[in-house]
């Protein structure tokens, strides 16, 4: 088992392999490795990004709790071992590449919002996300308004009217208004990493 894990880690760090699996070219993956190194050594220099390091990168604080940051971290951590390795980092960021298909972005967003991870989004999950949003921002909404927003959400997205949004309904819902519903799913910086970030070196190889 140990050999298998070691091999997997090496493969994940191979820029050519990652380039073939993502929307990044080899130079961009090497540039991303510089960002990864910075994030993964911000608290403990161990070659992986912990949740605290991820929060530090996002918010400038490792203490700030956020439901959405937690969910994004969980989705980046595809092996679900509590840390983000470089391969996981690159593959997850690829979804946020401007060239990634809308359906792929919508799928990631669906999994992000499917808090209970049961394969559909229910009213309780939507309410939990709105409450988290209010808790994490200065926005104040009364209970009745929150319920109106949830009603509106399901009127628009739950086309089958069964009280939950399934992946098919979600894709149709997003396709009707992608600019509003997927606006956080594209990171413009990823379009041309190597010129946007001249401080990122185009190095000969990715070190261990």
């Amino acid at each position: 088992m140990g050999c298998c894990c070691t091999k997997q880690r090496v493969d994940h760090k191979d820029p050519a392999v990652l380039a073939s699996q993502t929307y990044f070219n080899i130079s961009e993956i090497e540039a991303l490795y510089d960002l990864f190194k910075k994030l993964s050594s911000s608290i403990i220099h161990d070659g992986v990004i912990s949740k605290e390091e991820f929060q530090l990168g996002l918010f400038g604080s490792s203490e700030k709790r956020s439901l959405f940051a937690d969910r994004v971290f969980q989705l980046f951590d595809s092996k679900n071992d509590g840390v983000i390795e470089f391969g996981e980092f690159v593959k997850a960021l690829s979804v946020f590449h401007p060239a990634a298909p809308q359906a792929q972005k919508a799928d990631f967003a669906f999994r992000l919002y499917d808090i209970s991870q049961r394969g559909f989004i229910e009213r309780g999950e939507v309410r939990e996300m709105i409450l988290a949003l209010l808790n994490e921002s200065d926005l104040v909404l009364c209970h009745d308004i929150i319920e109106v927003i949830i009603d509106k959400t399901f009127e628009e997205a739950d086309s089958k009217g069964d009280g939950r949004i399934d992946p098919e309904e979600w894709q149709e819902f997003v396709a009707r208004n992608p600019s509003l519903l997927l606006r956080n799913m594209t990171i413009p910086y990823l379009k041309d990493l190597t010129t946007q970030f001249p401080s990122f070196k185009l190095t000969s190889g990715i070190e261990d």
């Binding site: 956020s66 959405f68 926005l139 959400t153």
Partner: peptide, 25 residues
């Protein structure tokens, strides 16, 4: 204004998860 939005539009507009900040420091 928020009442005219659905929940997901509200979440997106609030920038609750904006990964741009990973690249801004």
């Amino acid at each position: 204004k928020p009442v005219s939005m659905n929940a997901f539009e509200l979440i997106c507009r609030s920038q609750s998860f904006n990964l741009d900040s990973l690249f801004e420091k």
